[in-house]
Amino acid sequence: MSFKINWDALGIAASVACAIHCAVLPLIMSSLPIFGMNIIDNEAFEYFMILVAFGIGANSLYHGYKLHHHRAEPYIFFTTGILLLLAKQVWHQYQLVFLAPAVLAIVYAHFRNYHLCRKADHCHAADCNH
C-alpha cells in the first residue's frame, strides 16, 4: 500500500491555517508578551509562514500543472495571493485590506487546481480499457 499526499488538500489546509493565524491568534494569544513570548506581529515568523505557504502551494500547483492540466490560471491566483501576503508585511497598516483577498486568492488557486486536475482527460485511445 503506497501513501500519496494530496498536495491540494495540504495547500488549502496551509492557507486556512494561515488565515486562522492572522485573524484569530492575536485575539487568543494577546497575553503571550506577558510571558516574554511574541509571535504576534513577529516579522520573522510572518515571513516564515509565507515561505511555508509558498513552498507547499508551489509544489501542489506544479504537480497539477505538470501531470494533469497544463494551465497557468492556478499559478496566477496563487502568485497574486502570495504577493498580497508580502504586501501585508510591507504595508503593515493595511494588513486587513490585503489579508482577505490574499487568502481568497490562494485558496481559490488550490480549489481551481484541484478542479482542473479532476477535469483533465487522461484517457488516450491506446490506454483506454473501454
Rank of each mutant, 00 (worst) to 15 (best):
M1K: 01
M1Y: 06
S2K: 14
S2M: 14
I5Y: 02
N6M: 02
D8H: 13
G11R: 09
G11P: 02
A14S: 12
S15V: 02
C18R: 15
C18G: 13
A19S: 12
I20K: 14
A23G: 10
L27C: 07
I28G: 10
M29P: 01
P33T: 06
P33D: 09
M37C: 04
N38D: 14
N38E: 15
I40P: 11
A44Y: 13
Y47S: 06
M49R: 03
A53C: 07
A53V: 12
F54K: 04
G55A: 14
G57W: 05
S60G: 10
L61M: 06
Y62A: 13
Y62V: 05
G64Y: 02
G64E: 01
Y65F: 12
K66M: 08
H68L: 04
H70S: 13
H70M: 09
R71F: 02
A72F: 07
Y75Q: 03
I76R: 13
T79P: 10
T80Y: 11
T80L: 14
G81F: 00
G81D: 04
L83A: 08
L83G: 05
L84A: 11
L85C: 11
L85N: 10
Q89M: 11
Q89L: 01
H92L: 09
Q95A: 09
L96Q: 10
L96W: 09
V97H: 04
L99C: 06
P101S: 08
A102E: 00
A102I: 12
L104S: 15
A105C: 11
R112W: 06
N113L: 01
H115K: 15
R118K: 11
R118L: 01
K119E: 02
A120I: 00
A120D: 00
H122D: 01
A126K: 00
A126M: 01
A126Q: 02
A126F: 03
N129R: 05
H130A: 12
